[in-house]
Computed example of a mutant assay.
Amino acid sequence: MVKDVFTNVVANLVTALIFGVSAYIILYIRMSGITQTIRRVIHPKQRVFALHDLKINGINRLEVSKFLSPLSEHERDILVKFHAARNGSNPHNGSSIRLDGISPVSNDKKEYTAHISKVGFFDFIATNLTAYPANAPIRSFRSQMATLMRSFRTFGLIQQVVNEVHKYGEPKKVEDVLENRSLANIISVSVLIVDATGRIGIVERTNKVAVSSGNFGATCAGTVGDVDFDADNPFESCGLREIKEELNLDLERLHFDGIVVPKQKMQPIFLYHASIDQTWEELFPIMEQARDISFETQAFYAVPVEDIIKFASHTRMTDTAAYQVWQYAVKNGQDNNWYKTLLLPFDVKRYLIPWNSQKDGTK
């Protein structure tokens, strides 16, 4: 009888051990950033919904947003604290601009009016980033366990958001996402800037930023805010403002390339590109004086257009940026075989441009 009890105890311990190891493996895969690395195998076209060949010719500013929060303000703040603790960030609840929809104003559906309204940045964290997370990796065991405990405490709220968001069905195009009133859908812009030698500026974001921390992105990106709301073109206004704040560069115009919604975050993002008549090396003394560069940018790369697809496939690039550089390269006559580039070795660091202060050893 004692032998049977011992056997049962051992069996239960082995079962618990197997269960615990299996749970940790699942947790590690989810939190370690492996899934983000695996996403590089997926072609950029499959990671986003996209709209091209359109012009935004009118802006309809709504006094009351169409957004219907699935949470109370208190519940929203709980999820924001969970997100901040998980990512080690300190987000600020500024006024952001929601894309409530777009409607054609011409029979050929080339010209559109954009309908926009004001919502809070915390609304975006508690809805888009909760229902469609694209989290920064957590590699230490202690931090993973802390995140797991926080997940247990906020599970009910997370499920509440997911259930409300999914009532609108599975999105299959940009318009489906914009019609989902349970998503805050704040607008961001992503700008590719090409220098005089044809090299595209690519930034590696710091871990301080609240969204896409630690990832590689376009030359400049930012969220359309309250300051842009009344501009003739709020989206281009945001792009030009962010370029000044992050890179200390004064540009006059940007070329609009369309709207994408990455399937992680489900956030509407306006794509732009611009060309400058100087090299990145010539501009760096100016860029280093930018207000937000030390907070936003960890490293800066200048990549020739003929190598940009290879660069994107070998870095942890956001879905939006990967799609944007792929689309730009293809439009400029480059080979669009994404999968082939994954199999070839590639030295990313050869395109790194050190800050002048780094060269001097003072940064």
Rank of each mutant, 00 (worst) to 15 (best):
V10I: 15
T15W: 14
T15C: 09
I18W: 09
M31D: 11
G33V: 10
Q36W: 03
Q36N: 15
T37I: 14
I38C: 02
I42E: 14
I42V: 14
Q46D: 10
V48T: 03
F49M: 06
F49Q: 02
D53E: 13
L54R: 01
K55F: 06
G58D: 03
R61E: 12
L62G: 08
S69N: 10
I78S: 01
L79N: 05
L79C: 08
L79K: 03
H83V: 00
A85C: 10
R86A: 04
G88L: 13
G88N: 09
P91C: 07
N93D: 09
L99S: 07
I102R: 00
P104W: 03
K109P: 00
K110Q: 13
E111D: 13
T113C: 05
T113W: 13
A114L: 08
A114F: 10
S117N: 11
F122K: 09
N128K: 00
Y132S: 10
A134K: 12
N135I: 08
P137C: 08
I138P: 02
R139L: 15
S143I: 03
Q144C: 09
M145Y: 11
A146E: 04
M149C: 04
F152A: 14
G156Y: 14
L157N: 05
I158E: 14
Q159A: 06
N163R: 15
V165Q: 04
H166A: 07
Y168Q: 14
V174N: 05
E175S: 12
S182D: 01
S188H: 01
V191C: 04
V191Q: 00
V194R: 02
D195P: 08
A196G: 08
G201P: 00
K208M: 07
V209M: 10
V209F: 11
V211E: 11
S213Q: 15
G214Y: 03
G214V: 04
N215Y: 12
F216G: 11
T219D: 09
D230L: 13
A231M: 09
A231L: 03
G239A: 07
L240W: 01
L240H: 02
I243F: 06
I243A: 14
L251D: 04
F256P: 00
F256D: 00
I259V: 12
P262A: 02
P262G: 05
P268T: 05
F270M: 15
A274H: 08
Q278R: 07
Q278L: 03
T279S: 10
E281I: 08
L283W: 02
P285T: 14
I286N: 02
Q289C: 10
Q289L: 12
S294R: 15
K310H: 12
T318L: 05
T318W: 05
V325L: 10
A329H: 01
K331T: 08
N336V: 00
N337R: 07
L343M: 14
L352P: 06
N356L: 15
S357T: 11
